[in-house]
């Protein structure tokens, strides 16, 4: 124990047995969480791999070529990169003003609305998509961009209202009032004080929405296939029709945007914005 470390609980300090248990737990958690990802990642570079070897016997980049030269997979990547940002954009336009209203206005039905939005989460996605199909047929939304976008936006509404609402509510009113006092218009207060201060929460909501859209497979498949295939929907067919390694390569590609975005927003997510967002106030 060095002088620079604060020993918080020396009295109840861990014995060797406890430390061993903790170490074991950390090891098991690492295997449990990281193991499958590493294992899958290795497949993307493996030429041949026979049981029970822990590493492939020969390596190759062939599977990457297969994936990168496959037209339909390329289209799926393009589609995903179109739907996800569009979903975030549209969902922001629809939901952010509402989030602000939930945070700053008192109006009839506020809590009912909040709970109602949450309730969409309670209805199983698969069941919802089954039921939505009839409506989409009637409205001619099957196999349309609009239809897919609607499916994607539905999955983001809870994130986009609840999390930013908590972020808006956390902006001290006195700061807004100080800006008004300094002569700022209502709009100016919103753009100069409220939005920047609530930004981390909004960012978290946007990242979560992006990922929700990027991951959405069931609904997209039902409404968009075979006209609009996205990366996750392709993944379903890949798993069935291609060698294991191709799915591994595709998985890595599919994970890149998620990992990049989540890493960027990780600080804020771990900082409690996600957790804050899910308490009714």
């Amino acid at each position: 124990m060095t002088a620079t470390v604060t020993p918080r609980r020396r009295k109840s300090g861990p014995g060797p047995a406890v430390m061993l248990l903790v170490g074991l737990f950390v090891l098991l958690m690492t295997i449990f969480i990281i193991g499958p990802l590493v294992w899958l990642g290795l497949h993307a570079f493996s030429e041949s791999w026979s049981y029970p070897n822990l590493l492939p016997s020969s390596w190759t980049m062939r599977w990457w070529q297969v994936v990168l030269s496959d037209k339909s997979l390329g289209v799926a990547v393009q589609n995903s990169l179109f739907f996800a940002p569009m979903t975030v954009l549209l969902s922001s336009i629809i939901c952010l003003p509402a989030a602000y209203a939930f945070a700053r206005h008192e109006f009839w039905g506020r809590r009912t609305f909040l709970i109602g939005l949450f309730a969409t989460n309670a209805f199983p996605k698969m069941g919802l998509f089954v039921t939505i199909a009839s409506l989409f047929y009637a409205l001619n939304l099957m196999n349309t961009i609009t239809g897919v976008l609607i499916i994607h936006i539905l999955g983001t509404v809870v994130f986009m209202t609840w999390i930013p609402a908590a972020a808006f509510a956390a902006v001290p009113r006195s700061l807004e009032e100080a800006a008004r006092d300094a002569g700022a218009s209502k709009l100016r207060v919103l753009t100069s004080v409220t939005l920047p201060m609530a930004f981390p929460g909004i960012l978290v909501a946007m990242v979560m929405s992006f990922l929700a859209s990027f991951d959405e497979a069931q609904g997209t498949y039902l409404v968009g296939a075979p006209v609009f295939m996205t990366m996750p929907t392709q993944m379903y067919s890949l798993v069935l029709n291609y060698p294991n390694q191709v799915a591994a390569v595709f998985s890595i590609l599919l994970a890149i945007p998620s990992v990049a975005l989540m890493t960027a927003a990780h600080k804020h997510i771990a900082g409690g914005h996600l957790a804050e967002g899910f308490q009714i106030k």
Binding site: C95, A98, F102, F107
Partner: peptide, 14 residues
């Protein structure tokens, strides 16, 4: 009405 109207779009969508 302002708050109510602002909150309406996602609710209507849902």
């Amino acid at each position: 009405p302002v708050g109510f109207l602002l909150a309406l779009p996602p609710v209507l969508l849902i």
